[in-house]
Amino acid sequence: MVVPLSSMCEGEKGKIRKLELPPLTRERLCGLGFVSGEEIQLVKVAPFGDPKVFRIKGTDITLRDDISMWILVETSSVPLSYVSEGDYWVSLINGGMGFRQRLRVIGIEEGIKISVIGNLGKRIEVSAKGIRSTLSRGQAMRIIVRER
């Protein structure tokens, strides 16, 4: 799945697809190694959520969201319903306010870590922020997760 660099989760890796930035900024980033096909990792988020530190070609570069949101990266994201047991990151929730609110109550939000405990049959058992809960397959289809 292609997402803006700014929406990656801490620790997540991706491959750069495209830089949708003005020429001068793009050129500067090129010199730092931001070219398509390059692997990039979000290493760290600053105290107030912005800026973020990215690791590319072995060095740490900090960018603000206003730049990193225009850098598109390919990440290995899939709907929660397809994954097997293990730890994942919630990258996207396809749904309205109500759906999001319901998920928030059981600890599931974009950007947090989620553990799939059981994925058999109609129901998926997960745990997020220490809260264990069970999701229906339909709900799980609308939660997009990525591997670390």
């Binding site: 900024t25 500067r28 980033l29 730092l32 800026p51 530190v53 060095t59 740490d60 570069i61 900090t62 960018l63 603000r64 206003d66 730049i67």
Partner: peptide, 9 residues
Amino acid sequence: EPSTLIMEL
């Protein structure tokens, strides 16, 4: 007008 930040650590 906002500034921007591209900085190597």
